[in-house]
Design a binder for these strands. Structure first.
Lengths: 345, 345
DNA sequence: ATTAGCACTGTGCCCGGCCGAGTGCCAGCA
DNA sequence: TGCTGGCACTCGGCCGGGCACAGTGCTAAT
């Protein structure tokens, strides 16, 4: 299907499409010709509007639930709206203030990834999603080996743009600190390596190449390090305001709601969908079937990537395709600025 | 309402209640007198069964959706069944084998808390829940302070019966290792303390009592340590097999399904409900309104506490009140034995 | 090109009637 | 006394018809 260019539609069609989208977003019902006329004080007659709507339908931008119903935007209609019609919105001062407060509080307490989802959900009145960045191929650039008191040993690995992760184990016999440092150096000489698989490859090489006296520690440490990296690669998706999406009229049938149950329980499909926003430094919109996971193809996602503490995260909002894109984009733009997403690396 | 004693019901009433519960569990429909008679080859007449059912209804064990429908167990009916009627079930060999394999594989890969939910869900054909144990008041019994290469510093805290948690920060100026060790010792002298609040109190005391040269590091380390403990106290709830609960006939209306959406998204109510199983060394059953969170009062939970790696966890299964308690209890009993839950501290 | 008018079509809703399931009760019987 | 067969009753679910309504598509007029 060829992408519509902005100038394929004349001014009137563009205005009417805008009206239909925005009316339908707020009213959640098919919109008819006389409603558009009345709501926007148009001086043209309903019949003319009907003709225009018919053209929009031929373009695939509107559709018709049944003969005697009004029009509803198609996913392509929303796409056209988002790309060419929607004008920037500004946040209500109260919303802005609430966000500022929440962000400031989060910064102080340091638990920003905990506070962000409820704040976003509250401000957007939609389900908010925050995914701590995942990257299977992220380079492991740090490796630390520490002997703790009491015989336990600690291994720490850091991936680029990610936090440091640690785990501990208790070897059969105490390990000489000098051996630890040599083992550390041996590993570091090969850094950076690519993700968990890189570490596993390193563990493999270690068996034949590393000096025997450090092989023992490394045999314990490297697989654990690989597991840590693999664990970081599974993004933790945090959610806020699930009540909003569950309250939407499009999710008032069990068939519509069920996929949501699955997605919210096992968040993997959601994480997958959010990955595609990893490069978005400004809010990006994904509408319905534009994203892959079937369970959320009745939803739209507006999201972007921001710096969150030491690592990057995708933050966004998910709702029905009939979503107030204007408002949500404005919201995310603001939050992104506040968190330094746009200015980030 | 006074608790029913097992001998308040004569043998026939007990048998009929058993039949009604078990039929309803498998068929998900009200069960009528002639169905009971036919299904269990009873030699008594439907009329007699009806009389018996009427008595059971007077006891509050059965109820009646409407005049011309069969009987349905009440929550108290299920409770009586679970307490007095249900006989131990044995696992199908295939299930047992599948579980053995999953557990063995999980043990090898070390990621048991990842593998357990899907395994439990698959074996029980219900939603499985695994909650890593939380305890606000858990004693902090370990404290480590380590200088890493590159100027970063690492603080590690361990709570009793829990894993070691770590975080890092980068102080303005490098800290002398000797100072680190003295700071460590100063904190350890006060261990164990109770949970995050204990650490916060310690940070408070530190300001007036600690030698000035270690106050700087501790001012950075102690609040971070407190946050780590607070974070551990928020149990991570993992789920498996959400499709099972979403497929149950009792959740085929939006009103029934909606609370589930909320609970699965924000897992806090679930975590709260699971806390009450922390002391259960054998499967315990909580039926409908027996647990507090309103959102899951149309569900039952069968769960128990087991040792999972270094810490304890509550593992269980959640489904509609109409749940195959026999089978699920047998399943959890088996898994509990395998994980050493019963034999645990 | 726009508009007024009008016939048309499909949905949602209410209503009445029917069917079936399963009960409660009663009278009769071991 | 306890069980049983029989019977009237009640309620939910389902089906089909009829009505009101909304909003369209078309045509003819401006």
């Amino acid at each position: 299907m060829s992408r519509l260019t902005p100038d394929m539609l004349d001014e009137r069609l563009r205005r009417i499409l805008t009206f239909v989208v925005e009316s339908h977003v707020t009213r959640a019902e098919p919109v008819g010709s006389q409603y558009v006329r009345a709501a926007y004080h148009l001086s043209i007659s309903p019949a003319t509007i009907r003709n225009a709507m018919q053209q929009l339908e031929e373009f695939g931008l509107l559709s018709h639930p049944h003969t005697s119903a009004g029009r509803v935007p198609t996913e392509q209609g929303y796409r056209y709206y988002v790309d060419h019609l929607m004008r920037p919105d500004s946040l209500a001062p109260a919303t802005r203030r609430a966000l500022d407060e929440a962000l400031e509080e989060a910064r102080l307490s340091g638990a920003i990834e905990e506070r962000l989802p409820p704040a976003l959900a509250h401000a957007s009145r939609h389900l908010s999603v925050v995914s701590l960045q995942s990257d299977d191929t992220a380079r492991v650039h740090r490796f630390e080996l520490v002997g703790l008191d009491g015989g336990e040993h600690l291994v720490a690995v850091g991936i680029e743009g990610g936090p440091l992760a640690t785990t501990t184990w208790r070897p059969a016999a105490a390990v000489d600190p000098a051996i630890l440092r040599r083992a550390e150096s041996w590993v570091r000489a090969s850094l950076p390596v690519a993700g968990a698989t890189g570490l596993e490859a390193l563990a493999e090489r270690m068996r034949s190449e590393a000096p025997p006296e450090i092989a023992g520690v490394l045999a314990e440490a490297l697989p654990r390090a690989a597991r840590l990296v693999a664990g970081m690669a599974q993004p933790a998706v945090r959610l806020g305001g699930a009540e909003h999406i569950a309250a939407q009229p499009e999710f008032q049938t069990p068939d519509a709601l069920r996929p949501l149950v699955l997605v919210l329980a096992e968040r993997e499909p959601l994480a997958r969908a959010l990955e595609s926003f990893a490069a978005a430094r400004a809010p990006r919109v994904s509408i319905g079937h534009e994203h892959a996971p079937a369970a959320i193809q009745s939803c739209s996602i507006v999201a972007m990537s921001v710096e969150l503490g030491p690592s990057r995260a995708v933050i966004g909002v998910m709702g029905p395709v009939r979503m107030p894109y204007r408002r949500v984009v404005a919201l995310l733009t603001y939050v992104g600025e506040r968190l330094g997403g746009g200015s980030g690396a």
